[in-house]
Amino acid sequence: MTALIAAFLPLFVAINIPGILPLYIGMTETFSADNRRQLLVRALLAAAVLAVLMLFAGQVIFDTLGITLNDLRVGGGLILLVIAVTDLAFGDVKERRGGGKKARAKLKDHPVDEPVDLPVVPLGIPLIIGPGAITTILITDGQYGWIVTLAAIVINMALVFVSFTFGPAILKLAGRGTSKAVAKVASLFLAAISVAMIRAGILGMVAAV
């Protein structure tokens, strides 16, 4: 259970549900309930497939590129740190990933009840499973094994489904400002986790010399 919690939390922070929920609402505001549900299911399937693929291809990637877990810890930690700092200092991470304006532009050309081909990009990838989440999955697999990491992926995908299903109604009650505040707190924890990854990687490199 301790390992599962340790694997779940970094991935939960990397996915950043409070941060991507407002964009999901913005992308689907003209959708009917059925089309919104279909979009969500397809996006989650795309994100889950990518997450599982990266999980089981992690060792192959290590061997092919000639890298170690400590290299990935430092490199991945730097990526997460840049994402967290950019989000905290320069605004919403979703706009930085380029999905918001393009997604809303696509919606203008489609009727309310017509499905729009948005599940894979940008909703599933990279909003739900982006570079930060991929890096976290690879590192977690090396630390806790594929069973614990797969369980963490499944739990996080379930939380995304629940949050995106009921989030629009809750967000209307809480207000957009509250959602942004929660997203900022998540980014702060992401920065702390990234620093911990970098520290562990450097210590591992020093110990291996």
Rank of each mutant, 00 (worst) to 15 (best):
V85G: 05
R104W: 01
V185L: 13
G58V: 07
I155A: 13
I198E: 02
V195G: 01
L81G: 00
T140K: 07
I202P: 08
T135S: 05
I129Q: 01
A191K: 06
R97H: 09
G91H: 02
I25V: 15
S163I: 10
G75P: 00
H110K: 06
A14L: 02
V116F: 04
D141K: 14
K172G: 14
K184R: 12
I125G: 07
A191D: 06
G98A: 06
M1C: 12
V209C: 03
A84S: 13
P10D: 14
V112A: 15
G201A: 04
A208P: 04
Y24A: 10
L23R: 09
V182Y: 11
I137P: 14
L72V: 11
V60W: 08
I193E: 00
G177T: 11
T30F: 04
A183Y: 01
M27I: 12
I202C: 07
G76E: 05
K108C: 02
M1Q: 13
I67S: 00
V121R: 00
L69I: 00
S194Q: 03
R104C: 04
R176S: 11
K102G: 03
M1S: 14
L45W: 04
T64M: 03
R176M: 09
G204M: 03
S32M: 03
F189K: 04
I83W: 06
A105H: 05
I5V: 14
V116K: 03
S32Q: 03
G132V: 00
K180R: 15
T30P: 07
T165L: 14
G167L: 12
A186R: 04
V112I: 06
D34S: 02
R176C: 07
S194L: 01
G177A: 11
P111G: 13
F90S: 00
Q143Y: 14
T30L: 05
P122H: 06
Q38F: 12
N16Y: 01
F8W: 12
S179G: 11
P22I: 09
L203E: 14
I125R: 06
K172F: 09
D87V: 08
I134N: 15
I153L: 15
F164I: 15
Q143I: 15
